[in-house]
Simulated scan of single mutants.
Amino acid sequence: MIKYFCLFLLILCSCNKTEKRRNVLHVAVLRGPSVIAFAKMIEDSPEIEGKRLSVDIVDSPEQMQALLIKGEADLAALPMINAANLYNKGLKYALLGCPVWGNLYIVKKKDTDVLSRETNTLHVFGAGTTPDILTRYYLKQNGLTYSLNYSFSTPREISQGLLSGQVQTAVMAEPFLSLILRKDSTIYIQSSLNNPDSLSPGFSQTAIVYAPALQGKRAELDSLLNESCQFAVSQPEQTIRILENRNIFIPGSLTPESIERCQIKYLSTAEAQESILDFLRLIEKYEPKAIGGKLPDNGFMPEKQ
């Protein structure tokens, strides 16, 4: 009798879990600047046709890839090159839009010790990924010559090198950039890597992709994402409180200036198609394997709403 009762409970719990899953749309967001664009959505938990959007923070690209392969995310925010790469490998999540248009900057330490300066070395993280590619593109466009050093593989490691004096010039990303600027007044921003020209919103570094089942909900999702991005830009202090209260960012790691430096603005694929294609062509030119060896086909950016 006990055996049958336990089996009944197991079936009941399974049914409840399935029913709960049906009433929730899971939004996976890679930890980093992308999360800032989702603060209002995290706070409000909006609904689409009775289904609540639940934002889940993902700590690594590998974890994100696993979620998408298993179909456990209905929406996901991840680097554009990862989205294109996964699509080319057969994972048919389509592109909804772009919320973050750049958070990469070259920083330098002031000439506090001329003898110890690395005068022609630029430390870069993420070899073969967006920071590395945009650094090489920026240097070529501006006729600059640096010896690129990849010995520090993450922005955290580079920030520690800058603070310790091991590194003099480096590419940095938010939120680490704000932290080091606050801790060391001898570090300053030399230039931005985020604007290909004066007419562009920036580089479409971040993608929001959606599962095929949400094809008919694109207009509603675009509206919610646009509202959430506008909130981050117009209410930075409140955005910071939301993210800190939920322990997504440690207190003091975000400032209104750091949010501004992330260039948050939601544009749908229809609005940003040319900018997205320009960015993907740039990646294909410098590091084709980063997007799976080719540009994604038209299914990556479907035209029909």
Rank of each mutant, 00 (worst) to 15 (best):
G299F: 09
Q238N: 13
C6P: 01
G32W: 04
F231Y: 14
L53T: 01
R281T: 11
L144G: 01
E19F: 11
R31C: 06
L277A: 06
G97C: 07
S275P: 05
F300P: 01
R22S: 14
M64C: 09
L12T: 12
W101T: 01
E62R: 14
F279A: 00
Y210D: 00
S258T: 11
M301P: 00
V55I: 15
S151F: 04
L254N: 05
N298E: 15
I187S: 04
A270P: 01
E271A: 13
S268E: 06
L30W: 03
E274P: 05
R182N: 13
Y266S: 07
A207M: 08
Y93L: 05
L12Y: 10
S164G: 12
Q141G: 10
A28C: 14
C13D: 13
Y286P: 03
E47G: 01
L179I: 15
N247Y: 10
Q235W: 03
L162T: 02
L221M: 11
P61S: 09
L179Q: 11
N245A: 15
A211M: 09
F152N: 11
I133H: 03
G293D: 08
Q141W: 04
G292W: 04
Y93C: 02
V209T: 10
E220G: 01
I283E: 05
I187D: 02
I250P: 00
G161E: 02
V58C: 08
K110P: 00
G299W: 08
R52E: 10
L134D: 04
L243C: 09
Y188E: 14
E19P: 03
I2W: 12
E227A: 14
K140H: 12
Y188H: 14
I42F: 00
N82Y: 05
K109S: 09
I11F: 13
N23D: 13
K140C: 08
L91E: 05
E271I: 05
E174H: 04
C15K: 12
P256M: 08
S258I: 07
T129P: 06
G161A: 12
F176E: 10
I36C: 03
N82A: 12
G32Y: 01
T186I: 10
